[in-house]
């Protein structure tokens, strides 16, 4: 019995010493709860690794989870659990911007900082939204890239994620707007959007029927990481490499072989690791009261410049990283292990 007691005391002592030794870091004692759209999604795993990197530097603890079925109520359940577990910051990538407002406000009423990253929670439910680039920039950059590949003429279609996906719908609306507004796209015949539901099989199948229906199609935009490889594989299987080019938002590791195989001249993605990293820094600063989300406020994050809070379209506040990385046949190899 004495032995056990001695061991316990020694452990307690060691732990308390450790806590003294690490007490210097800014995030010490803070817990961040990260909620993403879906468990087992490589993109969000990358995002979480950004949080992990920040955790090493700042010393906070974090938990992360997403529902199995990318549902609204699954996220609500996880957020409630995190509130009970006493997190200080919630970083949410929402499946539905409006659906989480209530539970987020409950969290804020308990003094928890609520940030949304990657996919916003509506303005009335969040403290700050952190996004890689403005929706317009993301949409227009993809359009310009594919239009250049197509020589500014020919048929173009979009293979999107789910029909209810808010990010994709926003980007697509900017793409459509730009197509109408800008003269240089006059000869591009826009066919419309098909939905692959972020599901490999469905994305593959809708692409196939798209190609069957419009054999002369020249360009595809795939603004979703889950759909990209499916569409690329389909173009390859149909023997249309060279005739049909795609672009979109994809992970490098998913697409490396296809990009080098000539299916795409370039695809894009911001770095979700950086996105997670910055979100963690903002969260810690806000929880410590060192930084307040207000128009014009700026924050210092190692390796980033000019991070400034600006008003967003939905009447809330937003912070852009404004870094979009192109993956081309030459550069993609360098990204494989990262994304």
């Amino acid at each position: 019995m004495k032995k056990v007691l001695a061991i316990v005391l020694a452990l307690v002592l060691a732990l308390s010493l450790m806590s003294i030794a690490t007490a210097e870091k800014a995030g010490d004692g803070l817990t961040i709860g990260i909620v993403y759209k879906q468990s087992g999604n490589a993109y969000f795993q990358a995002g979480v690794s950004g949080f992990a990197k920040a955790a090493e530097e700042l010393g906070f603890e974090f938990m992360h989870d997403g529902p199995e079925d990318s549902s609204n109520d699954g996220q609500e359940r996880i957020i409630r659990n995190y509130i009970d577990m006493g997190v200080d910051v919630l970083c949410i990538s929402a499946n539905d911007a409006a659906g989480l407002v209530d539970v987020c406000n409950e969290a804020r009423a308990k003094g928890i900082v609520v940030l949304s990253w990657d996919a916003k929670v509506d303005a009335e439910g969040r403290d700050l939204d952190i996004e890689p680039a403005s929706a317009k920039a993301i949409g227009v950059q993809q359009l310009e890239s594919i239009a250049e590949t197509m020589g500014y003429e020919g048929q173009l279609a979009i293979v999107s994620a789910g029909a209810t996906a808010p990010n994709q719908n926003l980007w697509i609306s900017f793409i459509e707007e730009e197509l109408k507004a800008n003269e240089k796209y006059a000869k591009v015949e826009y066919l419309g959007v098909v939905y692959g539901d972020d599901d490999y099989t469905k994305s593959y199948d809708v692409t196939k029927s798209l190609i069957d229906k419009y054999p002369d199609i020249k360009g595809l935009i795939v603004p979703t990481t889950n759909g990209g490889p499916a569409v690329a594989k389909c173009i390859m299987d149909e023997g249309k490499v060279g005739q049909i080019k795609m672009t979109g938002l994809t992970l490098a590791s998913d697409m490396a072989e296809y990009i080098k195989g000539g299916v795409a001249d370039a695809t894009f993605l911001w770095n979700p690791i950086e996105l997670g990293y910055v979100t963690a820094y903002v969260g810690v600063a806000m929880a410590n009261g060192e930084f307040e989300a207000a128009e014009g406020a700026t924050i210092e994050v190692p390796g980033f410049e000019g991070l400034e809070v600006i008003p967003s379209d939905d009447g809330g506040l937003i912070l852009y990283l404004n870094k979009l990385n192109p993956f081309t046949p030459e550069t993609v190899d360098a990204w494989i292990d990262i994304l």
Partner: peptide, 11 residues
Amino acid sequence: YYNAIEKGAAN
């Protein structure tokens, strides 16, 4: 066939 598999792919 698809060269990829993830959870829920055949849901």
